[in-house]
Amino acid sequence: MLSEGRLLNLGNATGHPSFVMSNSFSNQTIAQIELFTKNDEYEKRVYVLPKHLDEKVARLHLDALGVKLTRLSPEQAAYIGVPVDGPFKPDHYRY
């Protein structure tokens, strides 16, 4: 039994690699800024970050991997009913 039953990737090794944690922790940082600076917009409930911030976190990681995004033409954007700059998916989309 590894790590006495606790998280074996952190107990026996060094957990997740930096690159993937940069995604998680960018969300954490943006969420901290959001809750701290716009506190009066939030009630005592549980919220998820809006999709444009999720897309922003992903965007921040594309250059490092040499990813080149394709850009919708205004006609294409209108055809599928999304803004040219996103968000590109409805909230219920599951990826």
């Binding site: 074996l8 990737n9 952190l10 090794a13 060094t14 957990g15 997740h16 690699p17 993937v20 944690m21 995604n23 998680s24 960018s26 969300n27 954490q28 969420a31 959001e34 809750l35 506190n39 939030y42 009630e43 005592k44 409930r45 549980v46 919220y47 998820v48 970050l49 911030l53 999720d54 976190v57 992903a58 990826y95």
Partner: peptide, 24 residues
Amino acid sequence: PAINVNDSVTKSKFDNLYGCRHSL
């Protein structure tokens, strides 16, 4: 108030999936 960071797509579909693929 609470923000659920876990269910950002760039968290759960990355950290939980690709993070574990690496660290398991």
